[in-house]
């Protein structure tokens, strides 16, 4: 059991949520309640990481994070550290790879709020910000929690993007799923099995939680 790899995985999952949830909620709300030119394009771009092979996504991210790219150079200049093969780089890549897992359930959550309920809130004197806090957010809450669970679980299991962008630096970018791969390569079936079991339990727990939340929403709309 590599505790360091588990710790990197868990930090990566938590960091991804912290970075991705606020803009994910804003974008999901925007896509759910507004119509604007180019909306379909935005939705397609959000979904791209779903269909792109992780290594392809990782390749493009690695190229744009490299020290010769404007983004990588700016990061290097500001923090004196390369973005590629570092935890911050891995976090940025994870956030992008998880975009659809976060935005789509949140968008569905906001879309499920009946438009007339939102209008009734306006007619009750709630300004747009209070409508969002008191009507939209509580009603879309299960969608937001679902998004968080899916993104967290997906981050723990991500392999291709992590390997491409992060490399395999212990304590920095070596996650549990990469450690499993290494153990299998080294014919350490016992170690790989232990770590695989941890990920399996986490994945099953995550899905069970999503299902329970889904049922709660159904009951409320009864």
């Amino acid at each position: 059991m590599e505790w360091q790899a588990l710790s990197v995985s868990l930090w990566l999952g938590a960091g991804t949520l912290a970075v991705l949830l606020p803009p994910g909620i804003a974008l999901g709300h925007l896509l759910a309640v507004r119509t604007f030119p180019g909306k379909s394009l935005v939705e397609a771009l959000v979904a791209v990481p779903l269909v792109l092979p992780p290594t392809v996504l990782g390749y493009y991210l690695l190229t744009s994070f490299g020290a010769r790219s404007p983004l990588g150079a700016a990061f290097d200049h500001l923090l004196g550290q390369t973005l590629a093969f570092s935890f911050p780089g891995l976090l940025a890549a994870s956030a992008i790879a998880n975009l659809p897992f976060v935005v789509q359930p949140i968008q569905r959550g906001f879309e499920a709020v009946p438009p007339d309920v939102r209008e009734a809130a306006a007619c009750c004197g709630l300004d747009p910000w209070r409508r969002f806090l008191r009507i939209d957010l509580p009603l879309a809450w299960p969608g937001i929690v679902t998004a968080a669970i899916l993104a967290f679980a997906h981050t723990l299991g991500e392999f291709g993007v992590v390997l491409m962008v992060g490399g395999n630096i212990p304590g920095e970018t070596r996650t549990l799923s990469i450690a499993i791969y290494d153990r299998v390569q080294a014919f350490d079936d016992r170690g790989a099995g232990q770590m695989a079991a941890v990920l399996l339990v986490l994945a099953v727990a995550a899905l069970a939680l999503v299902t329970v939340l889904g049922r709660r929403v159904g009951r409320r709309r009864g």
Partner: peptide, 15 residues
């Protein structure tokens, strides 16, 4: 939200 209107919606639109 700045018009003091009391509106009853067709499907009530309760929260």
């Amino acid at each position: 939200h700045r018009r003091p209107v009391g509106m009853v919606f067709q499907e009530y639109a309760l929260f």
